Simulated assay, not measured.
Amino acid sequence: MASTIANVDVKQKDAEQALVVAISCSAVLEDAGDDGDDVHGVGVAFPLMQALQSVNRRLVAANPAESLLFDVLLVTTDERRRRQSARVVSSTKHYGLEVSRFCFSGREDFVESLLANQVHLFLSTEPEEVTLASQRGVLSALLGRQSWSSPSEQLRVLLYADDIINTAPANSIPAAQRFWSRLGAMRGRFGVLDSPLSVSVVTARGGRQKFGDALATLRSRGLDADEAHCLAGAPRGPILELLRPHFLLGDVTWSS
C-alpha cells in the first residue's frame, strides 16, 4: 500500500502554485544495503536536487512571499528501502535536501502516489518507471549518467522539441502544458544574465522552418528558451556535452 509522509523539517509549499517534481529515491540516494552506515550515499540526481534548491533560494531571496517554487517529492518503490524509511528520511536531512514529502509505495501502485500528489514531472533512472508514469499521463523523463556532471548551482533543462511537439502521447499533453507554463513563469522571474534556471531547446531533425515552428509552439505554451539549437541531423552528443542538462524531456535515448 502506498503512503505519503510530510517532512516536518521542511516548510510545505503552496500546493496550488508550486511546480511539483517527484524523483525516484534510487536516483538521489545510493543503496547502502541492509547493513553499514546510517546514511545512504548520494546518487546521480544529487546535483539536480541541489540545483532545484538553488532556484528556490534565489526566488525566495528576491521575494520572501514567493509561492511559485519547486516542491520536491522522493518516491521509493523498492521494498527494502520502504523498510528503511527512517534511513531515507535521515539521509536527506544529513545532506540538507529539501524534500517536502516522501512517497513509499510498490512498483505496481507508485503512479497512484504521483497522481494523488498532483506531480507535474517525474524523474527516474528506471526506464520501466518512466514508461508506467508516462502511460498514466504524468510527464516523465529518464535520468542518465550526464546528471553527475551537471552543475549544482544552476538548473539546466533541455527540451527535445521534435518529440515533445510532434509525437507526445495525447494523455501527456495536459501534464506537459502545466509543466511548461509553470517552468516558463519561473524562468521569467529572473533576468537574462546570472539566472539559476536555464532552458534550452534542440531540434535534431528538419530545417529552419521546423525549428521556428517548434520555438513558436513552446512560446505559445508559456515557455521561452535561453538557448535554441537546430542540429538538422548533426550528431547529438556534442550538444549534450556543451549544455550538460540535468534532465531532458523528449527522446529517452538521449539520457543513456
Rank of each mutant, 00 (worst) to 15 (best):
A45P: 06
F46I: 11
F46K: 10
P47V: 09
P47R: 00
L48C: 04
L48N: 02
M49Y: 05
M49P: 02
L52T: 07
L52D: 01
Q53M: 05
N56T: 01
N56H: 01
R57H: 14
R57F: 06
R58N: 08
R58G: 06
L59K: 07
L59N: 04
L59G: 01
A62R: 03
A62D: 03
A62Q: 10
P64I: 04
P64W: 08
E66H: 02
E66Q: 00
E66T: 03
L68V: 03
D71S: 15
L73Q: 02
V75L: 09
V75K: 00
T76Q: 07
R80D: 03
R80A: 10
R80N: 07
R80C: 06
R80W: 14
R81N: 05
R82P: 09
R83E: 14
Q84N: 14
Q84V: 04
Q84S: 10
S85T: 14
S85C: 07
S85I: 13
S85F: 13
A86N: 11
R87M: 12
R87S: 14
V88D: 06
S90M: 12
S91K: 05
H94I: 08
Y95D: 05
G96Y: 07
L97P: 10
E98W: 12
V99G: 10
V99I: 15
S100V: 08
S100L: 07
F102N: 00
C103P: 00
C103F: 05
F104W: 10
G106C: 04
G106V: 11
R107N: 09
R107I: 12
V111K: 02
E112P: 00
E112F: 08
S113M: 01
L115M: 12
Q118S: 11
V119C: 02
H120R: 02
F122K: 07
T125E: 12
E126K: 08
P127E: 01
P127D: 01
P127T: 11
E128Y: 08
E129S: 06
E129V: 06
V130E: 01
V130C: 11
T131R: 15
A133L: 07
A133M: 06
Q135R: 15
L139M: 12
L139K: 06
A141C: 01
A141F: 03
A141K: 03
A141M: 01
L142N: 00
W148S: 05
S150Y: 02
S152N: 09
R156Y: 11
L158C: 14
L158F: 11
L159E: 09
Y160I: 09
Y160N: 13
D162A: 00
D162I: 08
D163F: 13
D163H: 14
I165N: 13
N166H: 14
A168L: 15
P169V: 14
P169S: 15
A170S: 07
N171C: 14
I173N: 11
I173D: 05
P174W: 13
P174V: 06
Q177Y: 10
